[in-house]
């Protein structure tokens, strides 16, 4: 079985995150680039499954880490390899800078079709773009079932099962493979990569894929190879988030309730 885990290099959430007001894109030089934690957790869950599967003789599970990211973000893929992924696929192409969600989904879908996966696992949202729709978009493009926001995951030879929280309760969902799933931060804590794993990561295959390498798959999906001429979404303006101002402190002299009600009504919040 081959499981592709979609991982994402993101600006470190513990550092300053800066949006370039000129390009509207994240300024990647402004902070450390790290593997998004949710994708580390997804990877951890899948690696554990692969280890257990190998131990119990249930069959070999090949774990592939895949990302679409700028060329200089390979150290994050090396970390995925150090944690235990067998190989990595890095889709890197200057023509993909600033790709929107739909474009990203098309390219990832093409790469996933090229790789051929029994199961595709992603986080339920990234800490930088926080779109939260990528797994569903991929499922649509690849015509696969999608089981999203799983809090537990159980993988068998021909299906994936898990639970998801909804407003009304907890659902248990099952999808036949191949399928796309996304997982939440309820997944297990990611392991610390072992020193030996870090040194071994360099010997594992890390394939760099350019847009042109995906031409056949993109054509199969019925989408254009290069969209720079006809972007679907255009950043019109970007502004810095205004600095937080001090709030108004209401001291209760018997009228606090009325004043709070008035405050909310003024701002159409009540």
């Amino acid at each position: 079985m081959k499981i592709v885990v979609l991982v994402k290099p993101v600006p470190d959430t513990y550092g300053d995150r800066v949006l370039s007001l000129e390009t509207g894109l994240a300024d990647r030089a402004a902070s450390e680039t790290v593997l998004d934690e949710i994708t580390e957790r997804a990877l951890e869950a899948v690696i554990r499954h692969a280890e257990e599967s190998a131990k119990s003789g249930a069959g070999e599970v090949e774990v592939v880490a895949m990302t679409m990211a700028p060329a200089d973000s390979q150290s994050t893929l090396r970390k995925a390899l150090a944690m235990g992924a067998a190989s990595a696929v890095h889709i890197a192409d200057e023509r993909l800078a600033g790709a929107d969600l739909v474009r990203t989904a098309e390219v990832l879908a093409a790469a996933l079709r090229r790789a051929g996966a029994d199961l595709i696992v992603a986080g339920n949202g990234s800490t930088d773009g926080s779109g939260g729709v990528m797994p569903s978009m991929l499922a649509e493009l690849l015509e696969l079932p999608a089981a999203t926001r799983l809090e537990t995951i159980e993988i068998t030879a021909d299906a994936v099962r898990g639970t998801r929280e909804t407003d009304g309760g907890t659902m248990t969902v099952t999808a036949a493979l191949p399928a796309v799933v996304s997982v939440t931060e309820r997944m297990p804590d990611p392991r610390f990569p072992a020193l030996k794993g870090i040194m071994g990561a360099k010997k594992k295959p890390l394939e760099v894929v350019a847009l042109d390498d995906l031409s056949a798959e993109l054509e199969g999906l019925g989408v254009a190879l290069d969209e720079t001429a006809s972007a679907r979404s255009i950043m019109v303006a970007a502004t810095q988030r205004p600095a937080r101002e001090a709030g108004e402190i209401i001291t209760d002299d018997g009228t606090a309730g009325e004043r709070i009600a008035a405050f909310l009504a003024d701002r159409r919040l009540a």
Binding site: R78, A82, F192, P193, I198, M199
Partner: peptide, 13 residues
């Protein structure tokens, strides 16, 4: 150990 690997070791520790 390459500089990149050393950096990855240090980061993990």
């Amino acid at each position: 150990t390459s500089a990149e690997e050393r950096a990855a070791l240090v980061e993990a520790v």
